[in-house]
Structure formats: C-alpha cells, structure tokens
Design a protein around this nucleic acid. Sequence first.
DNA 1: CCCGGATTTGACAACGTTGTCCAGAGGCTA
DNA 2: TAGCCTCTGGACAACGTTGTCAAATCCGGG
Lengths: 354, 354
Amino acid sequence: MTDPARGTTQRNGTTSPRYGNRPTMKDVAARAGVGLKTVSRVVNSEPGVTPDTERRVQEAITALGFRRNDSARILRKGRTASIGLVLEDLADPFYGPLSRAVEEVARDHGALLINGSSAEDPAREQELVLALCARRVDGLVVIPAGDDHRYLEPEISAGVATVFVDRPAGRIDCDAVLSDSFGGARDAVAHLIAHGHRRIGFIGDQPRIHTAIERLGGYRAAMNDAALPVDEAWMSLGATDPSRVLAAAETMLSGPEPVTALFAGNNRVTVTAVRVLAAQPGRAALVGFDDFELADLLSPGVTVVAQDAAQLGRTAATMLFRRLEGAGEEPRQVVLPTRLISRGSGEIRPAHWS
Amino acid sequence: MTDPARGTTQRNGTTSPRYGNRPTMKDVAARAGVGLKTVSRVVNSEPGVTPDTERRVQEAITALGFRRNDSARILRKGRTASIGLVLEDLADPFYGPLSRAVEEVARDHGALLINGSSAEDPAREQELVLALCARRVDGLVVIPAGDDHRYLEPEISAGVATVFVDRPAGRIDCDAVLSDSFGGARDAVAHLIAHGHRRIGFIGDQPRIHTAIERLGGYRAAMNDAALPVDEAWMSLGATDPSRVLAAAETMLSGPEPVTALFAGNNRVTVTAVRVLAAQPGRAALVGFDDFELADLLSPGVTVVAQDAAQLGRTAATMLFRRLEGAGEEPRQVVLPTRLISRGSGEIRPAHWS
DNA sequence: CCCGGATTTGACAACGTTGTCCAGAGGCTA
DNA sequence: TAGCCTCTGGACAACGTTGTCAAATCCGGG
C-alpha cells in the first residue's frame, strides 16, 4: 500500500469503483476505450468529439458514477471559483441577510461561498482569513474584528481580491463598504432632541470597533449641535451581552438625574434595551441603530436607524468580482446612507424596511 | 507561455514572487538552499529537521510570503477538511443559529464550512449538493428542498458522510435529525383547545415540505383527540410569503363562522399572522411554530412551539463527524423534542428560549 | 487512386503538495 | 579504526486534472 490515507486496498488495475476510492477520468477512459483527454473533453463539453465517442464516454461516466474532482481542476487552473466571507456571527440577524446577499452575487459569478465566524476575536479572524487564503479563495469579504490587517498584505499583492464591510481595514489600504454610522447616529439623536429630550444616554459596542466610535461621534455631534451638555455617565461602550447592557441602562435610568431617552448602538443592544424599558414604569424613549423584525409592532414602536445589510453585502461582493475581473484601480471606500424610520407613538407607522 | 490562466509572464527560473504567481515550496527550497521535502517538513512541523535548517527555511518563507497551497495538499491527501451545508435561506432567522452551530462543530474538527442556499428549489439544491461533492467535501449537512435524493447515492457510497436536517431524505436511507413537528403541533393546538377555542385555523408551508405535512397531522390529531370537527377552509398550505399568508388568514377570520384562533406553521407565517391580528379589532388567539426574538414583548405575548435550531445543527454536525471517523453503522434518525412556551395574556412569562 | 486539409484523438507534461525510500554524515562501541 | 546505528536531507513518484502538440483518421477533389 503506497498511501494509507486512501481506500482499504491499493488500486489493482480494475476500473470498478471502490468505497473511498472514487473513479477518475483514467478509469472512465479505460472503460470507454478512449484516451484520457477525450474524457476531459466530454466532461467539459469541449468541441471536437464525435457523437458516437461522446455517447460511449457518457455511458462509462454513468456506469462508474464518475464525478470530476474539482480539487485537481483547481490545482491545474489556478482559480478556485470560491470566495470567503468572514464575519462576526452568522447567528446574528444582521449578518444573515448580508451573507445571503454575498452568496447570491457569488452564485451569479459561478462561485461558492465559504463562511466563517470570527466571534469578534481578532486572532480567530486572522486564523480564518489565512486558512481561506491557503485554500486559494479568489477573493475575501471581511467584516473585521481586529484593527491591524497588515498580515493580509502578501495575500492581497498575490492577487486575493479583498473587500472590507461594515468596518474599514486597519493599517492597510483596501476596498471597503460602510454604512454612514456617524450620520445615522447623529440623525437618531437629533430625532430624540427634536422630541424634547435633553438627557440622552448612548450604549454602544466595544470601543475597539470602528462603528462604535463613529456612532459615539454622531451622538456627540448631535448633542453639540443642539448645545446640550453631555455627561460622561451617559455614554457606555462595551460588550453587547445582555448583562452588560442591562447594567449600563439601569445605571443611566436611575439616580437623581436619569436620562429620558436611550440611543442603542446596534441591534443586540436595542433588543436588551427594549426589555429593560418594558420593565420600567416611567418609560424612557428609545432609538436603535439597525432595524429589526416586528419593531413596529411593539408598543410603543421602536424608532430605528436602518441600514440595509443585504445592500452592504451585495455592494461588497460586486466590488470584489469587478476587481477580480481585472480592474486594477485604487482601493475605494463606499459609504451607504442610513435611513431613520420613525415609529414613536402617535406618529405614522411606515412599512417595515424591505 | 504554457498556461494563459496564470500570471502575466511565464516562470523564468528566479524565485522572486510575482503578482498572481505565488511562491511555491520549490521557490522556498531554492532560496533556503535545501530540498523540497525539507520545506514540507518545516511547514508541517514534522520532526527530523535541525534548528539551523529550520531557521533558514522559516526565513525564506517569510521573505517570499509563502503560504501553502491547500488545493495541492487536498489533492494529495484526499481529505478536504471541509463540509458543506445546504439550507433554504441563510437570511432566515431560523437558519442563522443552525448554520453557526454546524460551523462551530466543524471548527472543533478543524474543518471549514461551505454554505449554500437552495431557495427552496429542488433543482438548485441538487446543483449545489453536486457542486460540493465535486469539491470533495468530506461531508454534507442538508436541509432538503426536494423529495428525491437518489442522486446522492453514488456520492454517499463513495464516502461522503451525509446528514439531513429538519426534513428527512427522500427515497434514500440516510441519517437525519428532525424536530418533533407532529408532537409540537399537537401540543400547540391542544393548548388552544384547552383555552376554550373550538374553531382553529392552520396556516402552513407548502405541502411538498415534510414538516408542513407533519404539523398538519399534529393539528388534525389534536382536533380529533378533542372530538372537534375540522373544516377544510381552516387549513391552508402554501408559500410562506406575506401576501399568501395574509390572504389565507383573512379568509379564515371572516365569514359567518370565523376561526377564533390561528396556528402558524413556521416563523415566517407567525410574523405575518402577528401583523394581521394586530390590525384586527377582535383579536383572535395565535400560537406559532418556532420561537422568535421579542415574542414575549408583544402584547399579547405570542405562545410558540420552540425548536432549538442550534441544537439541530450541533446534533447533525456531530453525527456527521462521528460517521467520518469511521463508524459504519446503519443510518439513524434522531428526533428532538419541541417545547411549548406559553405567553398568553394573564399567564406567567417565562424567559426567552436560550 | 492519391493528395491536401480539416477533424478527431491521444501521449505527455505540468499544477504544488506529500509519502516513500535511500544516501550521506556523524557518533558510538568494540 | 572498522563496523554499526541514528539522524538529517533530498530525489522521485503520485494525487486527478487540463493545455499543448503531434499523430491518426476521414473526406472530397483532382
């Protein structure tokens, strides 16, 4: 036995398929009584094969249950027709539609999608990205967890098309598709101010994350535009697990001068905030970043700054394939607008996003 | 030029990396002044290399930006360390956690996950599955759209470990992990009957889909157990897009003898039903199959039959890897229980699932 | 009936890696 | 110092496919 990783018995010259030892073009060729290359031609629908020969080959393929081994094909051709998507957590309702949109664009280009969750851990992000590069994916869509992506430089200059989404790349110059976090946050807080709120709290993601900082900036800008003071105690950045958010919200909502409104920095924070406020007697107002299902059916409805996750994914994937098709332009940054969907009580209820 | 698919210029004997023409172990070996196999040994941390030699190789690897080509490795070793997951729609909140759970188990086994959405189209399911087989994934987790999977027979007997989830395979004998749709549905409807309802409507997925039939069966069983008559007009199976569900619900809720309660066959139906009922003056009761975020904060809270999507995925992936590790047992079918979470007004509100 | 050109076919190398196996260097014992 | 053993390193084939190129075959026209 020459290779213990393969089937139970070594090849013995017959063409019968064996468990774990799939038939190859060579087997098909032998069975059809033709040359190896002729099988390849039939499999790839290349011209120059007589109908009679083709029939014989097709019969052999069916009889043996042959299926082309794409690993070998990929090795030979140099393109894998697959792209990688690294995001934070596939289970998060924000990333599902994004992922699906990327997949749809990939499909239009005949590519498969390899998916990985970084769990917001920079080391795991890097590990995943490099594993994908070793697989020689043609391109990468990355929602970064870390803030230093110099490790990607050799890959990119070796031709791996790369687009960052939701957050820009750190310390390298690279394509990116972002939402207007700053503008969206400013709109959200301005909305609260317009409704008479003066003491407004912001609960956001960890300060390591770009969008968290941008949204905090938008919050500050809106308060500043309205000449309102900002108390340090009104701003809380950190993990988005329910316990942390709950604690932060309760602190802001208690004390001698509690906030009268909360601005939640992303969908997970918003959901926890909804729960906290539902349990409070004198309900504070709430605006959340990211829309979510049934937000309009809660009472009161939750006003949100909506970003179109699917559009983010679609745009990124489209940029990626354009780059793969050869355009060697400078890296671009695309910023998509957000949309304030007002659902405060007494206001009209617009249709749910999408 | 021997191969136009590769870089802009043919290899010329130097070892410098070139755009689209990555360095190989051969290049590293030349630069480090060692043999090819020695580089392989260093890359794979195999024993039998002196520290000095190893250092020289490592330097060459770094200098050239070498990264092992896993396509070649896969071809040689016969295992891809990747599994495929074919589901209906990654954007559906039911599949996100499931997918994540599969990924997590795969990760524990050092495997990557290739993801594809069938869009509930049997042809697309087959196309995806076969594309994954051509990539020689080690295993497949399939949420089937079609009902005839004989096309998978050659693949399975060639060693592709396959587990079906949520719905059983059609016309082949194969591992499957299911939720107790029948029992869950019966519990749901029994719950409504216990609360005094006599005319109960069921809106479910297309009759082609196994779970839809099972849940309809559970509905019938519960009605039958209570000796209640069932009107044909109370049962509607079909696509789960909002317009169809809306029409079905409105028909059931109108007329001389409207239903007083609805049982929704899955999460998408439930969401639409919530909207319909919210717009109705005399609110009918609602129980839904599948739990959803914030179901408890709607008023009234929505009682659901919860299935643990993550647990489905985890179980399936675990079975898959066990099979890969060699156990050649008979195909097994695992049925996971569902859990009725009662949230009707006036009742206690248990914590949200998970 | 034979020649020229077009068409069909197959032998062979290459893609980049890993498994096998052998050669050479170095150390130890007798 | 011969003989043996261990350790390190490298040559080579193989994985299954596709691109190149040349050989074989066929056809019609002169």
